[in-house]
Design a protein around this nucleic acid. Structure first.
Lengths: 254, 254
DNA sequence: AACCAACGGTTCATCTAGTGAACCAGCGAC
DNA sequence: GTCGCTGGTTCACTAGATGAACCGTTGGTT
Protein backbone atom coordinates (compact mmCIF):
# COMPACT_ATOMS: atom_id res chain seq x y z
CA UNK A 1 0.00 0.00 0.00
CA UNK A 2 1.40 3.35 -0.97
CA UNK A 3 1.54 6.64 0.87
CA UNK A 4 1.93 4.96 4.18
CA UNK A 5 1.90 8.14 6.22
CA UNK A 6 -1.64 8.71 4.98
CA UNK A 7 -2.56 5.19 5.94
CA UNK A 8 -1.14 5.74 9.39
CA UNK A 9 -2.97 9.04 9.74
CA UNK A 10 -6.32 7.53 8.83
CA UNK A 11 -5.72 4.58 11.11
CA UNK A 12 -4.97 7.01 13.91
CA UNK A 13 -8.13 8.89 13.06
CA UNK A 14 -10.21 5.73 13.21
CA UNK A 15 -8.54 4.75 16.45
CA UNK A 16 -9.45 8.11 17.95
CA UNK A 17 -13.01 7.61 16.76
CA UNK A 18 -13.17 4.19 18.43
CA UNK A 19 -11.55 5.14 21.69
CA UNK A 20 -12.63 8.71 22.35
CA UNK A 21 -11.33 10.35 24.37
CA UNK A 22 -8.05 8.60 23.61
CA UNK A 23 -4.59 9.06 25.07
CA UNK A 24 -1.34 9.03 23.11
CA UNK A 25 0.08 5.76 24.40
CA UNK A 26 -3.27 4.08 24.02
CA UNK A 27 -3.46 5.11 20.36
CA UNK A 28 0.14 4.12 19.80
CA UNK A 29 -0.65 0.62 21.05
CA UNK A 30 -3.88 0.47 19.08
CA UNK A 31 -2.40 1.19 15.68
CA UNK A 32 0.99 -0.33 16.53
CA UNK A 33 3.03 2.69 15.55
CA UNK A 34 5.58 4.60 17.67
CA UNK A 35 4.23 7.34 19.87
CA UNK A 36 6.27 9.98 18.08
CA UNK A 37 4.59 9.14 14.80
CA UNK A 38 1.13 9.01 16.31
CA UNK A 39 1.66 12.36 17.95
CA UNK A 40 2.83 13.89 14.68
CA UNK A 41 -0.31 12.58 13.00
CA UNK A 42 -2.51 13.93 15.75
CA UNK A 43 -0.94 17.33 15.45
CA UNK A 44 -1.30 17.38 11.70
CA UNK A 45 -4.92 16.26 11.94
CA UNK A 46 -5.34 18.88 14.62
CA UNK A 47 -4.06 21.66 12.39
CA UNK A 48 -6.53 20.48 9.78
CA UNK A 49 -9.31 20.71 12.34
CA UNK A 50 -10.23 17.04 12.40
CA UNK A 51 -9.15 16.21 15.95
CA UNK A 52 -8.49 18.29 19.05
CA UNK A 53 -7.33 17.86 22.59
CA UNK A 54 -10.25 17.34 24.89
CA UNK A 55 -11.07 20.42 26.92
CA UNK A 56 -12.08 18.30 29.85
CA UNK A 57 -8.97 16.13 29.91
CA UNK A 58 -5.69 17.51 28.64
CA UNK A 59 -3.70 14.97 26.67
CA UNK A 60 -6.82 13.15 25.55
CA UNK A 61 -7.81 13.44 21.91
CA UNK A 62 -11.27 13.61 20.39
CA UNK A 63 -12.76 14.01 16.94
CA UNK A 64 -14.13 17.43 16.08
CA UNK A 65 -17.40 18.39 14.51
CA UNK A 66 -15.55 19.37 11.41
CA UNK A 67 -14.82 15.73 10.67
CA UNK A 68 -18.52 15.09 10.95
CA UNK A 69 -19.31 17.99 8.63
CA UNK A 70 -16.99 16.73 5.92
CA UNK A 71 -18.03 13.12 6.12
CA UNK A 72 -21.75 13.79 6.32
CA UNK A 73 -21.78 14.84 2.76
CA UNK A 74 -20.89 11.25 1.93
CA UNK A 75 -24.24 9.80 2.72
CA UNK A 76 -26.28 12.84 1.93
CA UNK A 77 -26.35 13.27 -1.77
CA UNK A 78 -26.00 9.53 -2.12
CA UNK A 79 -28.34 7.73 -4.42
CA UNK A 80 -29.91 5.55 -1.78
CA UNK A 81 -30.68 8.40 0.58
CA UNK A 82 -32.26 10.50 -2.11
CA UNK A 83 -34.37 7.61 -3.30
CA UNK A 84 -35.41 6.67 0.22
CA UNK A 85 -36.37 9.91 1.90
CA UNK A 86 -39.69 10.50 0.19
CA UNK A 87 -41.21 7.04 0.71
CA UNK A 88 -39.69 6.85 4.18
CA UNK A 89 -41.35 10.09 5.16
CA UNK A 90 -44.70 8.68 4.08
CA UNK A 91 -44.06 5.49 6.03
CA UNK A 92 -43.30 7.46 9.18
CA UNK A 93 -46.51 9.46 8.86
CA UNK A 94 -48.46 6.27 8.21
CA UNK A 95 -47.20 4.31 11.16
CA UNK A 96 -46.39 7.23 13.51
CA UNK A 97 -43.41 5.21 14.72
CA UNK A 98 -39.70 5.98 14.31
CA UNK A 99 -38.27 4.79 11.00
CA UNK A 100 -34.60 4.25 10.19
CA UNK A 101 -32.58 3.99 7.01
CA UNK A 102 -29.48 1.81 7.30
CA UNK A 103 -26.67 0.69 5.02
CA UNK A 104 -23.99 -1.97 5.57
CA UNK A 105 -20.56 -0.88 6.76
CA UNK A 106 -17.92 -3.48 7.56
CA UNK A 107 -20.24 -6.03 9.08
CA UNK A 108 -22.41 -3.52 10.89
CA UNK A 109 -25.54 -1.67 9.89
CA UNK A 110 -24.91 2.05 9.82
CA UNK A 111 -27.91 4.27 10.56
CA UNK A 112 -27.84 7.08 8.04
CA UNK A 113 -31.29 8.60 8.53
CA UNK A 114 -34.03 8.69 11.08
CA UNK A 115 -37.53 10.14 11.19
CA UNK A 116 -39.00 10.45 14.65
CA UNK A 117 -42.21 9.33 16.19
CA UNK A 118 -44.33 12.01 17.85
CA UNK A 119 -44.96 9.72 20.82
CA UNK A 120 -43.60 10.80 24.17
CA UNK A 121 -42.09 7.40 24.73
CA UNK A 122 -39.46 7.14 22.06
CA UNK A 123 -36.31 5.21 21.43
CA UNK A 124 -33.29 7.21 20.54
CA UNK A 125 -30.57 6.01 18.21
CA UNK A 126 -28.13 8.69 17.11
CA UNK A 127 -27.33 8.84 13.42
CA UNK A 128 -24.03 7.20 12.68
CA UNK A 129 -24.74 4.39 15.15
CA UNK A 130 -23.40 1.05 14.03
CA UNK A 131 -25.52 -1.94 14.94
CA UNK A 132 -24.42 -5.57 14.79
CA UNK A 133 -26.33 -7.24 11.97
CA UNK A 134 -27.52 -10.21 14.00
CA UNK A 135 -28.86 -7.96 16.75
CA UNK A 136 -30.93 -5.56 14.68
CA UNK A 137 -33.96 -5.80 12.44
CA UNK A 138 -32.15 -3.77 9.79
CA UNK A 139 -29.23 -6.18 9.91
CA UNK A 140 -31.36 -9.33 9.69
CA UNK A 141 -33.32 -7.79 6.85
CA UNK A 142 -30.10 -6.99 5.04
CA UNK A 143 -28.78 -10.51 5.58
CA UNK A 144 -32.01 -11.96 4.20
CA UNK A 145 -31.24 -10.27 0.88
CA UNK A 146 -27.45 -10.63 0.89
CA UNK A 147 -25.78 -13.50 -0.93
CA UNK A 148 -25.23 -16.76 0.85
CA UNK A 149 -21.46 -16.47 1.04
CA UNK A 150 -21.71 -13.17 2.85
CA UNK A 151 -24.21 -14.55 5.34
CA UNK A 152 -22.14 -17.64 6.11
CA UNK A 153 -19.10 -15.49 6.52
CA UNK A 154 -20.87 -13.14 8.87
CA UNK A 155 -22.37 -15.89 10.99
CA UNK A 156 -18.96 -17.55 11.31
CA UNK A 157 -17.54 -14.46 13.01
CA UNK A 158 -17.89 -13.84 16.73
CA UNK A 159 -21.44 -12.74 17.54
CA UNK A 160 -21.86 -10.56 20.55
CA UNK A 161 -24.98 -10.55 22.73
CA UNK A 162 -26.16 -7.04 23.50
CA UNK A 163 -29.08 -8.03 25.68
CA UNK A 164 -30.25 -11.32 27.23
CA UNK A 165 -32.63 -11.59 24.26
CA UNK A 166 -29.95 -11.29 21.57
CA UNK A 167 -29.79 -14.42 19.45
CA UNK A 168 -26.18 -15.46 18.82
CA UNK A 169 -26.60 -19.06 17.73
CA UNK A 170 -25.70 -19.28 14.00
CA UNK A 171 -28.23 -22.06 13.32
CA UNK A 172 -31.08 -20.12 14.89
CA UNK A 173 -30.01 -17.01 13.04
CA UNK A 174 -30.02 -18.94 9.76
CA UNK A 175 -33.57 -20.06 10.52
CA UNK A 176 -34.58 -16.51 11.34
CA UNK A 177 -33.11 -15.30 8.07
CA UNK A 178 -35.11 -17.93 6.21
CA UNK A 179 -38.25 -16.81 8.04
CA UNK A 180 -37.50 -13.22 7.15
CA UNK A 181 -37.12 -14.16 3.50
CA UNK A 182 -40.42 -16.04 3.53
CA UNK A 183 -42.32 -13.40 5.45
CA UNK A 184 -40.82 -10.36 3.73
CA UNK A 185 -39.75 -8.63 6.92
CA UNK A 186 -37.55 -9.26 9.95
CA UNK A 187 -38.59 -8.91 13.58
CA UNK A 188 -36.23 -8.02 16.40
CA UNK A 189 -37.68 -8.24 19.88
CA UNK A 190 -35.39 -6.56 22.36
CA UNK A 191 -32.28 -8.11 20.82
CA UNK A 192 -30.58 -4.75 20.41
CA UNK A 193 -31.85 -2.89 23.39
CA UNK A 194 -34.18 -4.03 26.14
CA UNK A 195 -37.71 -2.75 25.69
CA UNK A 196 -37.32 -1.98 21.99
CA UNK A 197 -38.86 -3.98 19.17
CA UNK A 198 -38.37 -3.35 15.50
CA UNK A 199 -39.39 -4.57 12.07
CA UNK A 200 -37.00 -4.42 9.12
CA UNK A 201 -37.13 -4.82 5.35
CA UNK A 202 -34.19 -4.99 2.90
CA UNK A 203 -33.61 -2.52 0.07
CA UNK A 204 -32.30 -3.71 -3.27
CA UNK A 205 -30.00 -1.61 -5.42
CA UNK A 206 -29.38 -1.80 -9.13
CA UNK A 207 -29.06 -5.36 -10.31
CA UNK A 208 -31.12 -6.52 -7.35
CA UNK A 209 -28.23 -6.74 -4.89
CA UNK A 210 -28.82 -5.92 -1.24
CA UNK A 211 -28.09 -2.25 -0.69
CA UNK A 212 -29.41 -1.49 2.78
CA UNK A 213 -32.59 -1.68 4.77
CA UNK A 214 -35.30 0.28 6.51
CA UNK A 215 -36.97 -0.35 9.82
CA UNK A 216 -39.85 0.67 12.02
CA UNK A 217 -39.03 0.65 15.70
CA UNK A 218 -40.44 1.60 19.04
CA UNK A 219 -41.07 0.45 22.58
CA UNK A 220 -42.11 -3.19 22.87
CA UNK A 221 -45.21 -2.01 24.68
CA UNK A 222 -46.44 -0.34 21.50
CA UNK A 223 -44.91 -2.56 18.80
CA UNK A 224 -46.82 -5.65 19.87
CA UNK A 225 -47.07 -8.94 17.91
CA UNK A 226 -50.57 -8.02 16.73
CA UNK A 227 -49.05 -5.16 14.76
CA UNK A 228 -46.13 -7.01 13.19
CA UNK A 229 -47.95 -7.94 10.03
CA UNK A 230 -49.42 -4.50 9.42
CA UNK A 231 -46.09 -2.76 9.97
CA UNK A 232 -44.15 -5.40 8.09
CA UNK A 233 -46.33 -5.04 5.05
CA UNK A 234 -46.27 -1.26 5.19
CA UNK A 235 -42.47 -1.28 5.36
CA UNK A 236 -42.27 -3.86 2.58
CA UNK A 237 -44.37 -1.63 0.35
CA UNK A 238 -42.13 1.33 1.08
CA UNK A 239 -39.01 -0.75 0.46
CA UNK A 240 -40.37 -1.94 -2.86
CA UNK A 241 -40.92 1.62 -3.93
CA UNK A 242 -37.38 2.61 -2.95
CA UNK A 243 -35.82 -0.46 -4.56
CA UNK A 244 -37.68 0.32 -7.75
CA UNK A 245 -36.30 3.87 -7.70
CA UNK A 246 -32.81 2.43 -7.23
CA UNK A 247 -33.26 0.41 -10.41
CA UNK A 248 -33.41 -2.97 -8.72
CA UNK A 249 -35.85 -4.30 -11.27
CA UNK A 250 -34.81 -2.23 -14.26
CA UNK A 251 -34.42 -4.18 -17.49
CA UNK A 252 -32.40 -1.61 -19.34
CA UNK A 253 -28.80 -1.51 -18.25
CA UNK A 254 -27.64 -4.44 -16.18
CA UNK B 1 3.13 22.12 8.61
CA UNK B 2 4.55 18.66 8.89
CA UNK B 3 3.51 15.38 7.31
CA UNK B 4 2.47 17.10 4.16
CA UNK B 5 1.23 13.98 2.44
CA UNK B 6 -1.36 13.67 5.17
CA UNK B 7 -2.31 17.29 4.68
CA UNK B 8 -2.69 16.69 0.98
CA UNK B 9 -4.75 13.56 1.58
CA UNK B 10 -7.15 15.34 3.90
CA UNK B 11 -7.43 18.27 1.54
CA UNK B 12 -8.27 15.84 -1.25
CA UNK B 13 -10.84 14.22 1.01
CA UNK B 14 -12.46 17.56 1.78
CA UNK B 15 -12.40 18.46 -1.89
CA UNK B 16 -14.19 15.22 -2.72
CA UNK B 17 -16.74 16.02 -0.04
CA UNK B 18 -17.34 19.47 -1.51
CA UNK B 19 -17.49 18.44 -5.15
CA UNK B 20 -19.08 14.99 -5.14
CA UNK B 21 -19.01 13.28 -7.50
CA UNK B 22 -15.61 14.73 -8.36
CA UNK B 23 -13.27 14.01 -11.25
CA UNK B 24 -9.49 13.70 -11.01
CA UNK B 25 -8.55 16.86 -12.88
CA UNK B 26 -11.18 18.82 -11.03
CA UNK B 27 -9.75 17.74 -7.69
CA UNK B 28 -6.23 18.40 -8.88
CA UNK B 29 -7.19 21.97 -9.68
CA UNK B 30 -9.14 22.36 -6.46
CA UNK B 31 -6.32 21.43 -4.11
CA UNK B 32 -3.58 22.66 -6.46
CA UNK B 33 -1.60 19.45 -6.49
CA UNK B 34 -0.49 17.39 -9.51
CA UNK B 35 -2.95 14.82 -10.79
CA UNK B 36 -0.56 11.98 -10.09
CA UNK B 37 -0.43 12.89 -6.43
CA UNK B 38 -4.18 13.35 -6.16
CA UNK B 39 -4.74 10.00 -7.76
CA UNK B 40 -2.34 8.31 -5.38
CA UNK B 41 -4.23 9.87 -2.47
CA UNK B 42 -7.56 8.77 -3.85
CA UNK B 43 -6.32 5.23 -4.25
CA UNK B 44 -4.93 5.15 -0.74
CA UNK B 45 -8.13 6.58 0.69
CA UNK B 46 -9.96 4.07 -1.45
CA UNK B 47 -8.04 1.14 0.02
CA UNK B 48 -8.93 2.47 3.45
CA UNK B 49 -12.58 2.56 2.47
CA UNK B 50 -13.10 6.29 2.76
CA UNK B 51 -13.71 7.07 -0.90
CA UNK B 52 -14.76 5.01 -3.90
CA UNK B 53 -15.33 5.41 -7.60
CA UNK B 54 -18.93 6.25 -8.29
CA UNK B 55 -20.88 3.30 -9.64
CA UNK B 56 -22.92 5.58 -11.82
CA UNK B 57 -20.01 7.45 -13.37
CA UNK B 58 -16.65 5.76 -13.72
CA UNK B 59 -13.77 8.06 -12.94
CA UNK B 60 -15.83 10.13 -10.55
CA UNK B 61 -15.05 9.85 -6.87
CA UNK B 62 -17.41 9.95 -3.91
CA UNK B 63 -17.17 9.61 -0.15
CA UNK B 64 -18.29 6.32 1.33
CA UNK B 65 -20.54 5.64 4.25
CA UNK B 66 -17.57 4.42 6.16
CA UNK B 67 -16.24 7.96 6.36
CA UNK B 68 -19.58 8.95 7.82
CA UNK B 69 -19.49 6.12 10.32
CA UNK B 70 -16.06 7.07 11.61
CA UNK B 71 -16.72 10.79 11.80
CA UNK B 72 -20.17 10.50 13.35
CA UNK B 73 -18.64 9.44 16.57
CA UNK B 74 -17.16 12.91 16.78
CA UNK B 75 -20.35 14.70 17.60
CA UNK B 76 -22.11 11.84 19.30
CA UNK B 77 -20.53 11.35 22.64
CA UNK B 78 -19.68 15.02 22.71
CA UNK B 79 -20.47 16.98 25.80
CA UNK B 80 -22.85 19.39 24.13
CA UNK B 81 -24.91 16.70 22.47
CA UNK B 82 -25.27 14.70 25.66
CA UNK B 83 -26.29 17.77 27.60
CA UNK B 84 -28.72 18.90 24.93
CA UNK B 85 -30.69 15.83 23.99
CA UNK B 86 -32.88 15.55 27.05
CA UNK B 87 -34.09 19.15 27.19
CA UNK B 88 -34.33 19.26 23.41
CA UNK B 89 -36.60 16.25 23.38
CA UNK B 90 -38.91 17.98 25.85
CA UNK B 91 -38.90 21.13 23.75
CA UNK B 92 -39.89 19.18 20.66
CA UNK B 93 -42.77 17.51 22.46
CA UNK B 94 -43.86 20.86 23.85
CA UNK B 95 -43.90 22.76 20.60
CA UNK B 96 -44.59 19.84 18.23
CA UNK B 97 -42.31 21.56 15.73
CA UNK B 98 -38.94 20.38 14.41
CA UNK B 99 -36.02 21.32 16.64
CA UNK B 100 -32.37 21.45 15.66
CA UNK B 101 -29.09 21.43 17.54
CA UNK B 102 -26.26 23.27 15.79
CA UNK B 103 -22.61 24.03 16.50
CA UNK B 104 -20.24 26.41 14.69
CA UNK B 105 -17.89 24.98 12.07
CA UNK B 106 -15.67 27.31 10.08
CA UNK B 107 -18.14 30.14 9.71
CA UNK B 108 -21.14 27.90 9.19
CA UNK B 109 -23.63 26.36 11.56
CA UNK B 110 -23.45 22.60 11.45
CA UNK B 111 -26.65 20.73 12.24
CA UNK B 112 -25.72 17.86 14.52
CA UNK B 113 -29.13 16.74 15.74
CA UNK B 114 -32.74 17.00 14.73
CA UNK B 115 -36.01 15.94 16.30
CA UNK B 116 -38.93 15.85 13.91
CA UNK B 117 -42.36 17.35 13.98
CA UNK B 118 -45.28 14.95 13.55
CA UNK B 119 -46.96 17.39 11.14
CA UNK B 120 -47.41 16.24 7.59
CA UNK B 121 -46.01 19.48 6.28
CA UNK B 122 -42.41 19.39 7.42
CA UNK B 123 -39.15 20.93 6.44
CA UNK B 124 -36.28 18.60 5.94
CA UNK B 125 -32.70 19.46 6.72
CA UNK B 126 -30.31 16.49 6.68
CA UNK B 127 -27.94 16.17 9.60
CA UNK B 128 -24.52 17.44 8.68
CA UNK B 129 -25.97 20.36 6.73
CA UNK B 130 -23.92 23.51 7.00
CA UNK B 131 -25.90 26.73 7.07
CA UNK B 132 -24.48 30.23 6.60
CA UNK B 133 -24.69 32.02 9.93
CA UNK B 134 -26.36 35.14 8.58
CA UNK B 135 -29.05 33.12 6.83
CA UNK B 136 -30.17 30.91 9.70
CA UNK B 137 -31.78 31.44 13.08
CA UNK B 138 -29.17 29.16 14.65
CA UNK B 139 -26.40 31.25 13.12
CA UNK B 140 -27.83 34.59 14.21
CA UNK B 141 -28.42 33.21 17.70
CA UNK B 142 -24.83 32.03 17.82
CA UNK B 143 -23.55 35.40 16.62
CA UNK B 144 -25.60 37.15 19.30
CA UNK B 145 -23.57 35.31 21.94
CA UNK B 146 -20.19 35.26 20.17
CA UNK B 147 -17.58 37.88 20.92
CA UNK B 148 -17.55 41.11 18.99
CA UNK B 149 -14.36 40.44 17.08
CA UNK B 150 -15.76 37.22 15.68
CA UNK B 151 -18.98 38.90 14.61
CA UNK B 152 -17.18 41.79 12.88
CA UNK B 153 -14.91 39.34 11.17
CA UNK B 154 -17.81 37.23 9.98
CA UNK B 155 -19.82 40.16 8.71
CA UNK B 156 -16.79 41.46 6.81
CA UNK B 157 -16.63 38.29 4.73
CA UNK B 158 -18.74 37.79 1.63
CA UNK B 159 -22.36 37.10 2.58
CA UNK B 160 -24.35 35.04 0.15
CA UNK B 161 -28.11 35.44 -0.34
CA UNK B 162 -29.86 32.07 -0.37
CA UNK B 163 -33.35 33.42 -0.99
CA UNK B 164 -34.74 36.85 -1.91
CA UNK B 165 -35.44 37.33 1.81
CA UNK B 166 -31.87 36.66 2.97
CA UNK B 167 -30.41 39.72 4.68
CA UNK B 168 -26.84 40.32 3.54
CA UNK B 169 -26.31 43.93 4.60
CA UNK B 170 -23.79 43.97 7.49
CA UNK B 171 -25.40 46.99 9.15
CA UNK B 172 -28.82 45.41 9.15
CA UNK B 173 -27.37 42.15 10.39
CA UNK B 174 -25.66 43.99 13.25
CA UNK B 175 -29.01 45.51 14.17
CA UNK B 176 -30.67 42.10 14.02
CA UNK B 177 -27.98 40.64 16.27
CA UNK B 178 -28.61 43.45 18.77
CA UNK B 179 -32.35 42.70 18.61
CA UNK B 180 -31.64 39.03 19.18
CA UNK B 181 -29.54 39.86 22.20
CA UNK B 182 -32.28 42.09 23.66
CA UNK B 183 -35.09 39.70 22.90
CA UNK B 184 -33.30 36.49 23.82
CA UNK B 185 -34.02 34.71 20.56
CA UNK B 186 -33.42 35.18 16.83
CA UNK B 187 -36.04 35.05 14.10
CA UNK B 188 -35.36 33.96 10.55
CA UNK B 189 -38.23 34.41 8.12
CA UNK B 190 -37.53 32.57 4.91
CA UNK B 191 -33.91 33.72 4.81
CA UNK B 192 -32.58 30.20 4.47
CA UNK B 193 -35.28 28.56 2.47
CA UNK B 194 -38.48 30.03 1.07
CA UNK B 195 -41.51 29.11 3.15
CA UNK B 196 -39.53 28.22 6.27
CA UNK B 197 -39.38 30.32 9.42
CA UNK B 198 -37.32 29.54 12.47
CA UNK B 199 -36.52 30.79 15.95
CA UNK B 200 -33.05 30.32 17.47
CA UNK B 201 -31.39 30.63 20.86
CA UNK B 202 -27.67 30.43 21.68
CA UNK B 203 -26.10 27.85 23.99
CA UNK B 204 -23.27 28.80 26.30
CA UNK B 205 -20.49 26.42 27.21
CA UNK B 206 -18.18 26.46 30.21
CA UNK B 207 -17.00 29.95 30.99
CA UNK B 208 -20.06 31.37 29.31
CA UNK B 209 -18.63 31.35 25.78
CA UNK B 210 -20.92 30.69 22.82
CA UNK B 211 -20.91 26.97 22.10
CA UNK B 212 -23.76 26.43 19.68
CA UNK B 213 -27.45 27.01 19.37
CA UNK B 214 -30.85 25.39 19.14
CA UNK B 215 -33.79 26.27 16.96
CA UNK B 216 -37.46 25.62 16.37
CA UNK B 217 -38.44 25.65 12.72
CA UNK B 218 -41.31 24.91 10.44
CA UNK B 219 -43.37 26.21 7.55
CA UNK B 220 -44.03 29.95 7.67
CA UNK B 221 -47.72 29.15 7.53
CA UNK B 222 -47.52 27.57 10.97
CA UNK B 223 -44.68 29.52 12.59
CA UNK B 224 -46.53 32.83 12.42
CA UNK B 225 -45.50 36.09 14.19
CA UNK B 226 -48.13 35.52 16.88
CA UNK B 227 -46.17 32.45 18.00
CA UNK B 228 -42.70 33.96 18.00
CA UNK B 229 -42.74 34.99 21.62
CA UNK B 230 -44.12 31.72 22.93
CA UNK B 231 -41.61 29.64 20.95
CA UNK B 232 -38.77 32.03 21.65
CA UNK B 233 -39.32 31.82 25.37
CA UNK B 234 -39.73 28.06 25.32
CA UNK B 235 -36.48 27.68 23.42
CA UNK B 236 -34.73 30.16 25.71
CA UNK B 237 -35.81 28.12 28.73
CA UNK B 238 -34.48 24.96 27.14
CA UNK B 239 -31.22 26.66 26.19
CA UNK B 240 -30.75 27.92 29.73
CA UNK B 241 -31.13 24.41 31.03
CA UNK B 242 -28.56 23.08 28.56
CA UNK B 243 -26.12 25.92 29.17
CA UNK B 244 -26.36 25.28 32.87
CA UNK B 245 -25.56 21.60 32.30
CA UNK B 246 -22.56 22.67 30.23
CA UNK B 247 -21.25 24.64 33.17
CA UNK B 248 -21.82 28.07 31.67
CA UNK B 249 -22.65 29.59 35.01
CA UNK B 250 -20.57 27.35 37.20
CA UNK B 251 -18.56 29.17 39.86
CA UNK B 252 -16.07 26.42 40.55
CA UNK B 253 -13.46 26.17 37.88
CA UNK B 254 -13.51 29.07 35.44
C1' DA C 1 -13.14 13.29 -40.87
C1' DA C 2 -9.69 15.75 -39.03
C1' DC C 3 -8.74 18.35 -35.34
C1' DC C 4 -8.21 19.84 -30.57
C1' DA C 5 -8.66 20.09 -25.76
C1' DA C 6 -9.90 17.98 -21.98
C1' DC C 7 -10.30 13.77 -19.62
C1' DG C 8 -8.41 9.60 -16.43
C1' DG C 9 -4.38 7.36 -15.73
C1' DT C 10 0.97 6.00 -15.84
C1' DT C 11 6.03 6.38 -15.40
C1' DC C 12 10.36 7.20 -12.96
C1' DA C 13 14.54 9.99 -11.60
C1' DT C 14 15.09 13.19 -7.80
C1' DC C 15 15.68 14.31 -3.04
C1' DT C 16 12.40 15.90 0.45
C1' DA C 17 10.09 14.73 4.26
C1' DG C 18 8.57 10.90 7.36
C1' DT C 19 10.39 7.53 10.57
C1' DG C 20 11.22 5.49 15.28
C1' DA C 21 14.78 4.29 18.96
C1' DA C 22 16.21 6.63 22.64
C1' DC C 23 15.39 10.17 25.42
C1' DC C 24 12.90 13.75 29.11
C1' DA C 25 9.96 15.39 32.87
C1' DG C 26 5.87 14.63 35.55
C1' DC C 27 2.54 11.91 38.17
C1' DG C 28 0.32 8.34 41.22
C1' DA C 29 0.77 3.86 43.63
C1' DC C 30 2.86 1.26 46.93
C1' DG D 1 12.07 6.49 47.39
C1' DT D 2 11.42 4.18 43.21
C1' DC D 3 8.87 1.85 39.92
C1' DG D 4 5.96 2.11 35.95
C1' DC D 5 3.21 4.61 33.66
C1' DT D 6 1.96 8.94 31.21
C1' DG D 7 2.43 12.86 27.35
C1' DG D 8 5.93 14.78 24.80
C1' DT D 9 10.81 15.71 22.37
C1' DT D 10 15.07 14.86 19.62
C1' DC D 11 17.62 13.80 15.38
C1' DA D 12 20.44 10.80 12.06
C1' DC D 13 18.97 7.90 8.38
C1' DT D 14 16.97 6.58 4.30
C1' DA D 15 12.42 4.90 2.86
C1' DG D 16 9.06 6.77 0.48
C1' DA D 17 6.55 10.84 -1.53
C1' DT D 18 6.81 13.95 -5.34
C1' DG D 19 5.45 16.00 -10.00
C1' DA D 20 6.93 16.97 -14.96
C1' DA D 21 6.23 14.62 -18.87
C1' DC D 22 4.04 11.16 -20.86
C1' DC D 23 -0.05 7.88 -23.06
C1' DG D 24 -4.59 6.45 -24.86
C1' DT D 25 -9.63 7.98 -25.09
C1' DT D 26 -13.46 10.62 -25.48
C1' DG D 27 -16.58 14.30 -27.03
C1' DG D 28 -17.32 18.61 -29.16
C1' DT D 29 -16.17 21.95 -33.24
C1' DT D 30 -15.35 23.25 -37.60
Amino acid sequence: MSTQSVVTAIRVLEAVSDNQPAGLSELSREVDVPKATVLRMLRTLGELGWVAQSEAQAGKWVLTNHAFAVASRGSSGSVIRDAAMGPLNALQLDTTETVHLAVPDRGYMLIIERLDTPHVLRAFLPLGSRLPMHASSTGMAYLSAADEAFVDDYLAGPLEALTPQTVVDPARLQAMIADTRARGYSINEQGLSTGITSIGVPLLGSGGVAAGSISISGPSSRIVPAKYQEYGEAAAGTALEISRALGAFSTKGY
